[in-house]
Simulated scan of single mutants.
Amino acid sequence: MKTVLDLRDVSVDLPLGGFLSRARLPILLDVSLGIAAGESVALVGESGSGKTTLARAVMGLQPISRGTMSLDDQPLSTAADFTRMRRQAAMMFQDATASLSPRLTVGYLITEPFRIHGQPLADPETTARDLLAMVGLPPAIAGRYPHELSGGQARRIGVARALALKPRLLIADEPTAGLDVSVQAEVLNLLSDLRRDMGLAYLIITHNLALVRHVADRVVVLYLGRVVEQGPTAQVFAKPAHPYTASLIAAEPKPDPRQRRADLAIRGEVPSVLRRPSGCEFHARCPLARDLCRRVAPALASTGPGRMARCHFAVTTQQEQGEEHAVEN
């Protein structure tokens, strides 16, 4: 299928030590990622791994330091490129209510993208009603203000606003954060229906692995700004290749204590990006670390069709037998 979003070795460095300082702090390092038309890709990892920074970089809200980005084979580098790109890509922010201006009505907010991009509407009220109906909300919502909305309603308004211009790519940052379980299900079903009906490509940023299982075709795992594993969702969850991925999956709450894997628990705290560990950056927390891991940084290597992992010893059967085999770098 045609690639909608293509990232090649994207890195993001932030200033360190003040506005005039030349010191830079690496946040994202050599991230490569492609999303095909109609595909849903989940970006997972602990807080501080760089997930939201990557999303902001894709939307042009955070300049990249190195690498290339393109949307529909059109490069993204200049301000004009990103202005054009934002007609074809949209972002749902993590705090749905805070992303809406408290001074504007819902009807104005969801039709604002047309005004921003110079597409005047002959009948804004009808357009607002159509957008509300698309996300399952009644027309009366158009006259309300953000503080009058529930969490689920605000999330749906964010979806309607993001889809107003019929984009090809939707970036959803924690689309179910702060919602009750029943409302989460409604939002996920809505996103699935819109993906099917509109052929949308999704980049979903989340800590919720249950959500990943439900909506993502592929999963990309970030650790300290690097991709440590990626592959088809079902295969990654059934047989994770990287110990970090295995630990994230093992940390999912399970009602049966006999199914919990204490041996896969992540040890210690996330290292500071100011003092990145030598060798494999996960070695200080990895239950399988060896001397090689402390000395030599592993490369991102293939572990099978459509799968890659950044590990000297890719764990392909850890969940079943605790075995591992070496991956050639």
Rank of each mutant, 00 (worst) to 15 (best):
D193N: 15
Y202H: 12
L191I: 04
P175T: 03
E186G: 11
L191A: 03
R196C: 11
V183C: 08
D197M: 10
R196P: 02
I204Y: 02
R161Q: 14
D197R: 15
R168S: 13
L165Q: 09
G199F: 09
A201I: 04
S182P: 11
A162N: 11
L179N: 06
L169F: 01
E186K: 15
A185W: 01
S192K: 15
I205D: 10
M198Q: 15
L179H: 05
Q184I: 01
N208G: 09
Q184A: 03
I171Y: 06
P167A: 12
E186H: 13
L200K: 06
D180A: 13
P167S: 12
A201G: 14
D197N: 14
Q184C: 12
N208R: 09
I204A: 06
H207A: 13
A172L: 02
H207K: 08
L191M: 13
P175H: 02
V187E: 06
L188C: 13
V159Q: 04
I204H: 01
N208T: 05
V181Y: 05
P175C: 02
A172W: 02
E174C: 06
M198R: 12
D180N: 11
V183S: 09
D197I: 00
R156L: 11
R195K: 15
A162T: 01
V159F: 00
I157K: 14
P167I: 01
Q184F: 02
A177F: 04
G178L: 00
A164V: 12
S182D: 00
S192Y: 01
I171M: 09
T176H: 07
L190N: 15
L169V: 03
L179R: 10
L163S: 08
P175V: 05
N208M: 00
L170K: 03
S182L: 14
P175R: 09
N208D: 15
R168A: 14
